[in-house]
Simulated scan of single mutants.
Amino acid sequence: MSGFNLLSEQGLRLDGRRPHELRRIKCKLGVFSQPDGSAYIEQGNTKVLAAVYGPHQASSKRSNHEEVSVNCQYSMATFSTAERKNRPRGDRKSQEITLHLQQALKAAIKTELYPRSQIDVYIEVLQSDGANYAVSVNAATLALVDAGICLKEYVCACTASLSKDNIPLTDVSNVEELSGGPTLSVASLPSSNKIAFMDMSQRFHLDNLPIVIEQALGGCREIQAILEKEVRKHLTQIGSAGDWSNVAK
């Protein structure tokens, strides 16, 4: 339960959202030409870049693997938060998120199609305002799609928490994370309703946990629809650019 009331008397959150509402999401595929795939996403004020290289031949240490090796690297820009400048790159928290990203992405990739291969996923948080892991998963999914990596389905992630009155909240901002109670992060495969990864900042009461999980999964389903819409838009633009029949004579 939260230590502070995160809802106003009108039932609105600190940033004006209703309890179930996501922050505004803006995203784009193909933002870089050098990687095989790339994407940029803004979820509220959290801004993340993702780049994918591969599949390519695995390093000698991993060349014997029958399935693809997914190598992730997560980092935060020095200017991403006020306190970030005091933390070194590759700190323990970043290493944990890197492993969690790896777990979520491997659950979505058709790894059996790329034996003895490696896929490198690089994540850079440009601005942090809560749900860094969740937004990173969503950015990585778009970058994998842009790279043409075969996925079982999209893997999407969302956070959830509870207000002081035990009202579930979707897509928790940094202010809510700091002033509220425990936060749940869920990466799921929404189409099959499977959970790829789940983490809690603190323990929830057993009576509240199912409600918070369902709130996060509902957010994942909404995010999936947003990502799919952006992918269709991107593919339409690529198709239009490559349609020589539209070239002026």
Rank of each mutant, 00 (worst) to 15 (best):
A77H: 12
K93Q: 09
S38M: 05
D91K: 01
K85S: 10
V31G: 06
Q43L: 09
Y40F: 13
R18G: 09
S75E: 08
N45Q: 13
L14F: 06
R18A: 15
Q57N: 08
G54M: 06
H20W: 13
C72Y: 01
V48H: 12
E42W: 00
V31R: 07
E42I: 01
Q34H: 08
G44F: 03
Q73H: 15
E21P: 00
L22R: 11
E42G: 04
N86G: 08
G30Y: 07
N45E: 15
S80H: 07
P55T: 09
K28R: 15
Q57P: 01
Y74K: 04
C72P: 04
S75K: 09
K85V: 15
R89Y: 00
R18K: 15
R62P: 00
Q34T: 09
V31F: 03
E67K: 15
M76I: 12
A39W: 02
Y53T: 09
A58C: 08
S75Q: 12
V31A: 06
P88Q: 11
H20K: 14
D91W: 02
R84V: 05
R92M: 07
S60R: 14
R84K: 15
Q43A: 14
P35A: 02
S38F: 03
C72I: 00
K85Y: 03
N86Y: 12
H20F: 13
S38Y: 04
I25T: 07
R87T: 08
K28Q: 15
G90I: 01
P55Q: 09
E66C: 08
Y40I: 02
R18V: 05
E83F: 10
K28M: 11
K85A: 07
P35T: 03
D36P: 03
S69E: 13
V31D: 06
N45T: 10
K26I: 14
G90P: 01
Y74I: 03
D15F: 09
E42Q: 11
R62A: 13
A82C: 09
S69L: 13
K47F: 05
V68F: 00
S63F: 08
N71T: 10
C27H: 01
A77Y: 02
E67M: 11
N45L: 12
K61W: 02
S63P: 01
S69P: 00
P19I: 10
T78D: 03
D91A: 09
A82W: 12
G37H: 01
R24C: 05
H65C: 04
V70K: 04
Y40T: 00
N64H: 13
G54H: 05
E83A: 04
V70D: 06
V70E: 02
Y40Q: 06
G54C: 07
Q73G: 10
S59D: 14
